[in-house]
Design a protein around this nucleic acid. Sequence first.
DNA 1: CTACAACTTGGAGTTAACTCTAAGTCAAGC
DNA 2: GCTTGACTTAGAGTTAACTCCAAGTTGTAG
Lengths: 130, 130
Amino acid sequence: MTIKEVCEKYDITPDTLRYYERVGVIPEVHRTKGGIRDFTDEDVAWVENAICMRSAGVPVEMLIEYVRLYQEGDETFQARRDVLAEAREEIQKQLDKYQATMDRLNYKISRYDEAIKTGVLTWDRSFTEE
Amino acid sequence: MTIKEVCEKYDITPDTLRYYERVGVIPEVHRTKGGIRDFTDEDVAWVENAICMRSAGVPVEMLIEYVRLYQEGDETFQARRDVLAEAREEIQKQLDKYQATMDRLNYKISRYDEAIKTGVLTWDRSFTEE
DNA sequence: CTACAACTTGGAGTTAACTCTAAGTCAAGC
DNA sequence: GCTTGACTTAGAGTTAACTCCAAGTTGTAG
């Protein structure tokens, strides 16, 4: 699979993919004799994983650490698990914040829908705001 | 309320608060005769709102737009609602991504827990990865 | 065999959102 | 009244994560 195909598959730019490989977010990608990237299924799976993790805000630094441990072999199972567990905790915290913000937005939008009908904007919660 | 008290309440730095006021993420804060910030309850409510929105990744630019509309008065109810609805959509998309990443992490961590017990790491999903 | 688009690299540039610095002002305690 | 620490501003600097650029190479279509 060429870099272009992988990029289209995940809607990212070649620059991002090359950057991921350069800094170690994904392991080194297979090449043709000429030196052009030719992604194997395994390479693509690493890309998919990286993009999924990044989309949830897992820092590049943490992904690099995971790949580094992976390349060290089977003695790093526990260390790798710990990295993943840390990422999971961060994501759970973020999920909670997102949910709180959703609640606030839903409340405010419902108040605005009211205001658009009645011409008057009112807040009944402890939001002294606005 | 002093800037320090507000910062302690929300665990942020004075620099961040001053930055928020400067660029318009929150409206201008009440001052003492000497020119020192003295946050009213309303000011604090704006801060709380900004921090909640930012914690869910709502861009500073969008908060500025909301404050700008707010200061234009009652003719902007609809426009403000639209800004909030856009923020809500983005957050929903992010929530979905976070959930997908959680699923992936839970799966991987369970595989590692297995591997730590048995000494062998196996993947059964379509993750050719690793 | 020749275009020419798509690839390569190393390194510089960009962006959003802070974060820090310098130089000065305010105010509480002695 | 003086010291001392927290406050003020304008503007420069930082960080993470890309994103772009220049100069050169590869590979496919005619």
